[in-house]
Design a protein around this nucleic acid. Structure first.
Lengths: 145, 145
DNA sequence: ACATAGTTTAGAATTATTCTAAATCAAATT
DNA sequence: AATTTGATTTAGAATAATTCTAAACTATGT
C-alpha cells in the first residue's frame, strides 16, 4: 500500500493513460514518495525511500519510473551543476534556489507574468517551450528552513 | 604559439595572479581556444581543438585548465540537462538557449535590469550570488545561426 | 486460455569527470 | 649557477550517475 491520495492517484493514471503508459504499483509508489517529501531527492534517495515501502524494487525501476513520470508531465527534473539529477513534483511555475553550503534545493514561487516577461527577452528566432531559472547562494543567518 | 590577443593575455595573467595561480602555456592555449570559437564546447571538444595547437596536451590538463579558468572567473560553466558541461568565456550577463534539435547552445543577451528584477523575486532569506537562466526549445524555420 | 505488448529486474556497460602518483617545470633561495 | 620548493602536467586508474541488455514477469485484449 502506498500513500497516494485519491486525487493524486487519479492525476497519475490520467497522465499515464494519456501518454499510453500503464499504471503500476511501482509507478504509484515512486510518485507517492515524491509527493510525501518535497525536498528534491536524487534518484538514489528516491530509491531508498521507495524501498522502505516496496522492498523488492530495483534502482533501474526507480530510474524507469522517474523517467516515465517526467515524460507524462507529472514531475520535473532539476539539474544543479554536475550533481545527480533531482526530482520535483511541483508543477506550478517556480524557480529553484540552490544553497552552496548545505546543497539543498528550495522551490521559489515566481509571480505569474514573470515567466512571460522572461520569454520576452528571447529574440524572435528562438521558440522556447521551457524556462529554467536557478539561483545559487546561501541562506541568511541561521535560516535552515 | 597560441592566438591570444594582447588584451586577453593580460586579462588572463591578471586573473590568474589575482587568484595565486600561474600563467602557463596550457592555460593560455585553452583560453585562446575558448575565445576563438564561442560555441560553448564541451571539455572533449576543447581538448580536440587545443590538441591541434599543442599536440602533447592531455585531457586531464584540459579539465585542470578549464577548472582554473572557472575558478578565477574568466570562464563560466554551462550545464544543460545531463549533457557534458560546456564552457563559455562570455562574462556579460546573459542567458542560454538550448536547441533540442541540434543540441547547440546560444548566448542570449539579457537587458541590464532584468537580472536585478529576477533577483527581486527571491524572498529575503535567500542570498543569491548567481542566477542561471536557460531556455529550451527550437529555432524558427530554417534558422541555424 | 493465449498471444501480445508493456514493465520490471539484476547486472553489465557507458561515460563524463575526478583522482593518483610520478614526472616536469618554474620561481625563489642559497 | 645549483638547489629547494611548490605548482603544474600527464597517463592511466578509479569513480559514480545513468543507461543498456536481455530475461522474467504482468496485464490486457482476443
Amino acid at each position: 500500500m502506498n500513500s497516494l491520495k485519491q486525487m493524486d492517484r487519479g492525476a497519475l493514471s490520467d497522465a499515464l493513460d494519456h501518454s499510453g503508459q500503464r499504471t503500476t504499483p511501482q509507478r504509484e509508489t515512486v510518485f507517492s514518495v515524491l509527493l510525501d517529501q518535497r525536498d528534491h531527492p536524487t534518484a538514489d534517495e528516491v530509491y531508498a525511500r521507495t524501498k522502505s515501502r516496496m522492498p523488492t524494487i530495483s534502482i533501474a525501476t526507480v530510474y524507469n519510473c522517474l523517467e516515465t513520470l517526467v515524460s507524462c508531465g507529472l514531475v520535473k527534473q532539476v539539474n544543479i551543476e554536475r550533481e545527480p539529477t533531482r526530482y520535483c513534483p511541483n508543477l506550478s511555475p517556480h524557480a529553484h534556489f540552490h544553497c552552496r553550503e548545505t546543497g539543498r534545493v528550495y522551490d521559489v514561487p515566481v509571480p505569474s507574468g514573470m515567466m512571460q516577461e522572461l520569454a520576452g527577452v528571447l529574440p524572435g528566432e528562438y521558440e522556447a517551450d521551457s524556462v529554467e531559472l536557478v539561483f545559487r547562494g546561501h541562506l541568511a543567518k541561521g535560516k535552515t528552513k
